[in-house]
Structures are given as structure tokens and as C-alpha cells.
Design a protein around this nucleic acid. Structure first.
Lengths: 340, 340
DNA sequence: TCAATTTATGAAAACGTTTGCATTACTATT
DNA sequence: AATAGTAATGCAAACGTTTTCATAAATTGA
């Protein structure tokens, strides 16, 4: 069966082989109950024999859903986004959709271009990361009435429906944990905030909580490092070489936190005895590090899964209003912070 | 411009607005030189005003390429695959393709199902990870004459053209490095080999090299752990609690190696003084760990990039034969192994 | 046994493009 | 001024489906 056939096999080929009209073949796929058992069997045999595969493009121009959903991320190779992607993919796939993915490298114009390209493919819906997008991107989506959601951050006044966590609160919680443990000299290490409202929100939250406790972090203790172990390590080493050192480091994400820990270790400083480190994210592996990382857990898998469900639901059932979903975050107090 | 219009806008809408026929509109997109500058300008204005976006599905059924490439991975949230994906995506995108992605969780039947689904979308090409696929998957691709490549492992006798590294050799090189450093008591820690020819190949290579040196690893020093820091940590702890301990651990990938290091650290064993650890992969961050991980570098980004180029080339230029591309691997001797 | 339903199938239009061919209006050549 | 050639455009067929409507065949009910 399914022999190698030089010519393309389409619904006509099948209908000929099964000695029925193309309408019947189509029906046998889409409304099998309307076709006699006998005919159906004959068609199935022909399909298998010829190796026929339906052409979704043809269905799509007929007004049927394309069966694709787009996911546009800043980058795929950050642990946090790949976890999210995997979960999102699994959940939309369970509803029969295929996933188109692209990354834009924190460039909002690129994001617009990719969105446009996806719309050419007539995606049934699209998910974007965060809520910082160009006005053109928002308009493009509204104009085409393409179901779209924003994932990763929660905000009560997001322009798109969103599924995510409150990054500002995450920053606050991290700061509060350090404060509760008696820290007052706190260094800040964050990823650049432009094109990245997650990082910005966390930073704002942390700053606000510290300010509320009467603490103003000096500029030389406020580090901005790209998302990379080596960059964080390098930058934190410089900070720690100063004579006047913070007792704790609040890091915008777990990778930066791990970099900070490595920096400390490489200078023979003990974490948490000599310096405490707290992260945000709770990436895979943060729990198993040594010392186990104290961090704020952002439920990436849950967010990805729920986002997929929401979007699939939006496409299939066309509710006229999509809710905003806030996913709970929580402190994971482990071994990288101590009370002073 | 681009007002919110209730009705769909297609090429007919545009042609009316610009007072030309649909043929001219189409030509103005695809063969602009065949349309007078004046008309083109008029069309462009209409396009912008209406917010028209070409329908690739319609082009596709006309026999034109769909402009999509599929990438099917075991899982997206292993560092190594996400790095690969990002590089692959960038490279196919540069050639104008959009990327469909799916994961199969090391289940070859799922892989077949996903491949089929992608074929329904009329992908122009597809990339699979590794060379272990079901016969049905191979036949499906051959039958449809869909350009396909296998990425990640190189093998001179692969059924599909491949772009990748020699995993067997990686295993050998890791073993050789330990042998050269005087180790004879070597523990093995690998991911399960079924549905994962990469892991299997590395293990075979390591075993062969050890055997050639007259070393037979006892069963209790041969660990099989799922790809996870915590599993590796747990399993290695058990191994290290034995009185008769290996002097070195050869790990099938860097995550397992890092887990092994954490296990050692948690038992107050020093790496490399008390035990040496070597990994395979050289993931992002392995270099920055503490101690910096000695490992065999597999160039994930380069593989992803070249694979994208190869596949795009196969689609665009239809050469009748695609070469196999082997990407060089190399030892990165850092601080986690010592000579004894 | 005949009319009235019901069931199974086919014919044809529609979906949004691209492109080969035909037509018209210029431009250049003599 | 007539002819050949070229540039710009339109018409209509084609791509592979789905679905509405019509029709034929089978079943039901009297």
C-alpha cells in the first residue's frame, strides 16, 4: 500500500480510485455519518493505497480554519521561554492546532513583521509575550480580528487579554523576603528593560518595596546585565570587589542569580554566609543547584498551558470576551539567602 | 489608513479600490516590473488603505510553495534543542520561510502523527532530530517527496541527508580524555537510549573506547538517568555513597554532568580533587559553572544554522542530491577533571 | 402498489490566488 | 504614414477543497 507515485494525489485521484465523486470523498472525511459504510470503506482503502493527505491550504481558502496558531517570543533559547513554548504547544496541539513559532530578539519592529507574516498564513490565533508591542502590531491584530493573547505578564489593564503572572509583584516579593531577613544593603541585578516589560516590572516592584522600607539603592549597586551567566558573573565580580559590599543581591531572573552565585564562589565568598542571593523565575534546575536557589516561582508551564487553552477556546467557541487570567506566584525560600 | 473594515479584504477589494483588474494587483506583488509605476503606486495606496494581507493558502493551492518549514523535536525545553531551534529558525526565516514546530516526547509514533499533520499543511520541507524514526515516517516523507533532513547526529550512512556531529565520536573523545588523565575507574551516566540515538551513540562510543583500553565498567557504575538535574543528582549520590567509588564520571550530557557535580558537592566531595566529571554538549553556561565543566563541544547553533541553510537550499534550488554535513566537535578541557 | 420519506450520491459553485493568452495602446523604424 | 514591436492590462482557467442543491435509489406506511 501507499506506493511511491510520481504524480500528486489529490481528492480527484482518490475519488477515481474509489469510483465515487469528489463530494463523497470529502464527505467521508468531514461528515462520515453521511456516507454509507460500504462506500466509506472503499474510500479508506483508496486513501491508504494512494497515500492521500488532505490539503489544508485548500480547506483554508474555503473559509475553514487554517489549524495553525502562532507563538511569537523574544527568543527561544531562554529556559523560561522554552518551557513556556513546550507547554503552549502541547495544549494547542491537543485541540488540533499546529504551532508556528518565531522569535524577534526583543525588536518590536521585527515582531510586527513576523506577526504580519503569520497573518499571511492565516493563523487562527496568535500569542505574544508581554504587553510591550508596537502600536502597529496592536492595530494589525485588531484590524484583522485575529484572536490574540498576551502571555507571561498579568496586568488588569492589558490591551489584549492576558494569561500570566504579576511581575511587579514578583519584584516586590523578592525585596520583601530580603527585608524580612534583615537585609538593608541590597544590590540589584536586572536585565535591560527596553522591549522587555517583564524585567522592567520586576525592577520597578523591587525598587518600590525597597523605597517603602526607606531604602534607596545606590547607583553603583544597580547592575544591568544581559541575560547570560557569563555577563552576570563578570558584572557581579566587579560589584563584589568593592570594599563596601551589599549583604544581598536581588536578581531579575534565575540565570542572573546563578551568575551572581558563581561570581561569589569564584571569589571565595560563601553563599549565603557572605552574601545572600535571590532570583526570580524558579527555572528548571534552580531547586537542584548548590546552594539551592531562593527565588520567586513564576509558573511557566502553567502559564503556557492555560494560554494555549484560552486561545484555542477563543478560536473554537468565539466568546465575545476573553478573561484575563492571573497565575499565582510564590516565594521558594531555599538555601541561597540567610537572615542577618 | 488601514481602517477597521467589517468585511474581509481580498485581492478583489483591492483591485476595485485601485480601479484595475485582479491580475494587475497580483502582478504588482509578484512581478512589479510588469506593472507601470503609476498603477503600482495606486495599488500600493489601496493596499495600505485597506490593510490587505496576501493569502498564502490561496497561493499554496496554486502550486506555489507554502513558505513553511517544519521542525520536529523530541522536546523544546532542553537547552540544547532550544538553542538549535533558535538558530534553525533564524536561518530559515532569512530565506522567507515560517517555522512550524512540534515536539513528540521521544515517542516515534507521535513523531509520525506530527509529520503527517505538517504534511497536511503542505510544508515545503521538514527537519527531524536524529536518525531513529519509524519506518512509516521515512516512507511518508519519501512518498511525498518532501525535502527532509535529519539534524543533530552525523552518520555517513544516514537514510536522510543529515547535518550534525558524530555522537559516537563524542563519547569516545570524552572517554579518551579521562584515560589520558590516568583514570581507569570510570562511572558512566547516560540518558535512556530508546528513541534517542544520540544518547545511545555517545554511550556506545564511550564504552568502545574504554574497552579498547581494557576497561570494563561494572554494572553498578553504569547509571541511566532521565534528563534532569534532580534525577542525575539523586542517582549519582547513590553511586557515590558506595565505598568503592570511581575516580571519574563520564556523563552523556552537560545537564547530567552538572547534576553529578551537585551530587558530589552535596556530599562534600570536591570536583575535581575527589572526583572528576566530564560532560558532552557544552551547553550555554557550562563554561561559567563552578567548577567550569570539562566537556565535548557539540556546536548546536552551527548545526541549527547549517541545517536551515541546507533545507532552504534543497527547497529553493532542488538539487538532486543533498550532501551530508559533519560539524566538528572538540574537547573543552576546563576545571572539572584532573589528572591522577 | 403507490405515494411519501429518507438515505446516498453527484454536479456545480465558491473560496483567493497566479498566470498564459489575448487585446489594446503606445513607440520606434522604415 | 504604415508596420512591426513592445508595454500594460484584462479575461478566464486552474489550483484542491467544501457545501448547497438536485436527483436517484431505497425504505416506509397505508
Amino acid at each position: 500500500m501507499a506506493k511511491l507515485n510520481r504524480e500528486k494525489v489529490d481528492i480527484v485521484t482518490v475519488s477515481n480510485a474509489a469510483n465515487v465523486s469528489i463530494s463523497t470523498v470529502s464527505r467521508s472525511f468531514n461528515h462520515p455519518e453521511k456516507v454509507s459504510a460500504d462506500t466509506r470503506k472503499r474510500i479508506d482503502r483508496a486513501v491508504r493505497k494512494l497515500g492521500y493527505i488532505r490539503n489544508r491550504a485548500a480547506q483554508t481558502i474555503h473559509g475553514i480554519r487554517s489549524g495553525t496558531i502562532g507563538l511569537i517570543v523574544p527568543t527561544m533559547d531562554h529556559a523560561i521561554f522554552s518551557e513556556l513554548m513546550e507547554a503552549f504547544s502541547r495544549s494547542v496541539e491537543a485541540h488540533g492546532f499546529s504551532m508556528l513559532v518565531a522569535s524577534h530578539g526583543y525588536d518590536l519592529e521585527k515582531e510586527y513583521a513576523v506577526t504580519r507574516k503569520f497573518l499571511e498564513h492565516r493563523i487562527d490565533g496568535v500569542a505574544l509575550i508581554g504587553q510591550e508591542h508596537s502600536e502597529e502590531t496592536y492595530q494589525l491584530l485588531e484590524q484583522n480580528r485575529t484572536p490574540a493573547i498576551s502571555i507571561w505578564n498579568y496586568s488588569a489593564k492589558s490591551r489584549l487579554p492576558c494569561v500570566g503572572a504579576d511581575n511587579t509583584r514578583a519584584g516586590e516579593m523578592a525585596a520583601e523576603h530580603l527585608l524580612e531577613n534583615g537585609h538593608r544593603r541590597i544590590g540589584l541585578l536586572f536585565a535591560p528593560g527596553n522591549g522587555n516589560d517583564r524585567a522592567q516590572g520586576r525592577m520597578d516592584g523591587a525598587r518600590a518595596a525597597l523605597k517603602a522600607a526607606g531604602i534607596d539603592t545606590p547607583a553603583e549597586w544597580t547592575l544591568q546585565s544581559p541575560y547570560s551567566l557569563s555577563a552576570a558573573k563578570r558584572d557581579v565580580r566587579i560589584l563584589l570587589e568593592q570594599t563596601h559590599r551589599p549583604t544581598a543581591l536581588l536578581c531579575g531572573n534565575d540565570v542572573l542569580a546563578l551568575g551572581a552565585i558563581y561570581a561569589a564562589q569564584s571569589m571565595n565568598l560563601h553563599v549565603p554566609d557572605d552574601i545572600s542571593v535571590i532570583g526570580i523565575g524558579d527555572f528548571k534546575g534552580s531547586e537542584d543547584m548548590h546552594p539551592a536557589l531562593t527565588t520567586i516561582r513564576l509558573p511557566a508551564q502553567r502559564i503556557g498551558f492555560l494560554a494555549g487553552e484560552q486561545l484555542a477556546d477563543a478560536i473554537i467557541n468565539k466568546p465575545d470576551h476573553l478573561p484575563r487570567v492571573e497565575c499565582a506566584i510564590a516565594l521558594r525560600a531555599r538555601q541561597s539567602c540567610r537572615a542577618i
